[in-house]
Amino acid sequence: MKIKTLLLFTCLVGLGAPALADDPNLARNLAATCANCHGTNGHAVDAGTPGTMGALAGVPAEDLMTKLSAFRADLVPATIMHQIAKGFTEEQLQLIAEYFAAQPR
């Protein structure tokens, strides 16, 4: 864990990405805001049962971004996600999508 964190931190500093270098665990922290509904690390309870929240773990980042962008733009029917997706920047959503994509299903 520590080696991974260090590696991430060093690499991000190396890349000179100012918004991301702030906290090496930014993606993890942002993704944790979704866990209340979509499960810890995206492992939703009873995922797949109709009328339950979708699991996000292991979903390709491109797919998640397509959905989130559509919610943000009110292009798809939604009960709540259109309101929540608008609360994050595009860059934050990208970090969240990458984080969940990397979680084992």
């Binding site: 991974k4 590696l7 990458e98």
Partner: peptide, 10 residues
């Protein structure tokens, strides 16, 4: 890069 890190995390 984040993808690469992601696979380590996985």
């Amino acid at each position: 890069f984040l993808k690469a890190v992601g696979s380590i995390a996985a």
